[in-house]
Every structure is written in structure tokens, then in C-alpha cells.
Design a binder for these strands. Sequence first.
DNA 1: GTCTACTTGCAAATGATTTGCAATAAGGGG
DNA 2: CCCCTTATTGCAAATCATTTGCAAGTAGAC
Lengths: 146, 146
Amino acid sequence: MAAHTHPRQNLTELTARLRQHAQRITGPRQLILEVLRREEHPLTARQIHEQLDCDLATVYRSLRLLEEMAMVKRFDFGDGTARFELLGQNDDGHHHHLVCRECSTVVEIGECFSGNLEQRIANQHGFASVSHRLEFFGLCPDCQAA
Amino acid sequence: MAAHTHPRQNLTELTARLRQHAQRITGPRQLILEVLRREEHPLTARQIHEQLDCDLATVYRSLRLLEEMAMVKRFDFGDGTARFELLGQNDDGHHHHLVCRECSTVVEIGECFSGNLEQRIANQHGFASVSHRLEFFGLCPDCQAA
DNA sequence: GTCTACTTGCAAATGATTTGCAATAAGGGG
DNA sequence: CCCCTTATTGCAAATCATTTGCAAGTAGAC
Ligand SMILES: [Mn+2]
Ligand SMILES: [Mn+2]
Ligand SMILES: [Zn+2]
Ligand SMILES: [Zn+2]
């Protein structure tokens, strides 16, 4: 399956990755990875913190580190709060979401528009290493009823 | 031309729109519209404020009002700061940007992927009134050289 | 010109995220 | 297993964008 599948890696594998980057395997870091490993949708730092027993600042610092190590990916739903998802071993994690404007339900979206468009835009303006950020918003089935 | 064209409306026209919404034509509101009218790229509340002589809070309040009146559109480049563009009379302002990751240069992009994809995603998950937010990021010609 | 509701300025409050710093713990070497 | 150096943590304070309470000011109707 695609990007929105649970990275089925175990903690051992994850700590191995941490070690590779010459980082220390600390309690908070392992716990954060465990929490993320169980979720299928991106979590906010606060949501992660609620399931843990360490300082919020530590959660933020760890997430930033894990992001730099490409072990987690940051998403932005435009509500001023970052969300994070665990990345698989050799996964760049590029994918999108469909978010309910009413209840914030999240649906993982693997599809994307043809890379053609992005390439054309890059060429057209002489930009290099172009990437994009795309999220969909709408009303989920439940919220349409209400 | 497309969405990224200057709304060539004059202030009279703009104040007329304000009046339609039973809002008062105040100094700050006119000034904000004047500032936005001269720009071709989205501006932050702070940037607008720098060109004015009223309180920053007033700028935020006015922008929110103008947004609700569909006279300005809010954009999010993922840097935690909202940006605003003036909207043309009957323009929903839907368009995208290509932003340099290095110097923040902005290029207006009128193109978009086929509405087909959006429709398919909506149907597939039973969502209604689906819209999307899409921005491109890359290295502009200048920043590639350096 | 008067009157009233809508607006503004100013200061304080918010909320997410970051940072300084002293206390603490991880992992290599002995 | 102990020690030592250095990375990491907890806590509190600082940032930053944006919002909000409130008293003073003003646009627009009469
Ligand atoms: Mn996802
Ligand atoms: Mn634009
Ligand atoms: Zn919903
Ligand atoms: Zn650039």
C-alpha cells in the first residue's frame, strides 16, 4: 500500500535509526516513536504529549530532531498547529489529507496530480527542486447530515 | 488573465462593496484596501501595517472582516504567518504560489490540476464541498546560483 | 447637530513553539 | 561496574502571530 500505511517497523529498528545519527536513545524519544507508531493520522505535539510523561518542550525538541532525521514528517492543516506522522524506512512520506472543516476528521490520501504539472511549473519559472504541499478540505458524511 | 492579475478596481468600487455589507467606510479599511490594491503578491498583516498608520490589531480585525466579505483571500505558506491578497469583484481567488525556500520570492501560479482528481477524492470518501490548498516550494534562479 | 452603534487604540491575553540554564542521564573508556 | 564528557531534560521565561476586553472616538442615520 501507499504512504498512508502504518510503518510496521518495531522499536528496535527505530532506535537503530536513531543510533545511526549518533543520537542518544532516550526514554522520551522512544516513547514518542511508540505513540506515533500506533497512529495512522498525524498527531499534534500536544496530542503526543498527552500520551506521555515528559515535558512538552521535550516533545517539540524531539519531533524537530526526528524530522531532521527524516523519521517523522510534518504536516500543516492551516490551523496553526503542526501535525506529525511517522515515516517508513525509505519513505519520503509525500502524501495528502482530506480534512473535515466541521469535525476535523482526517482521511489519508495517497493520490496526487501528475508530476507533470509540477515539472512544468518548475521549468516555466526556472525554479529547481520543486515540491508541493497539498491538502483537501470538505464536509465528511457525518457532518453533512447534521 | 487569471487569478494572479491585479484587481484593477478603484477605491470607489471597493468602498461600494464595503457599503453593500452595511459596514462603515473607515480610514483604516480604505487604507488597507489601497495597500493591497498596489501589490501583486500576498502581504502579511505586519507588512500591511508598516505601510499604514493605524494599530496592528485594527489591521487584523479589518483583514478578517474583508475576508468574511470575500474581498480578500488568505493564503498560508506554512511559515506560521498568514498572507492576504485583494480579490476581484467576482473572483473566488483560487490560485497557487511557487515560493523560494531560500529567499521567499513568490511567483503567482494560475494553473491547477484537473478538478477531476478533487471530484474523485470527494466521491471516494463521501465528502461534500471539497476544496484544496496547494502551494509549491523550490529554489528560484537566483538562489540556485548562490 | 445629536445620537447610537460600530470602530479604534492600547494593553493584556492566547496559543503554539522556542530557548536559557542548571540538573540529569546516556554511552564510551577504563 | 565506575567515571567522565556531553547530550538531553525539566522548568520557567521568552517569542511570535493573532485575538480580545474595554474605554474613547467616529461614521452615518435622523
Ligand atoms: Mn497522513
Ligand atoms: Mn497570489
Ligand atoms: Zn466531519
Ligand atoms: Zn530564492
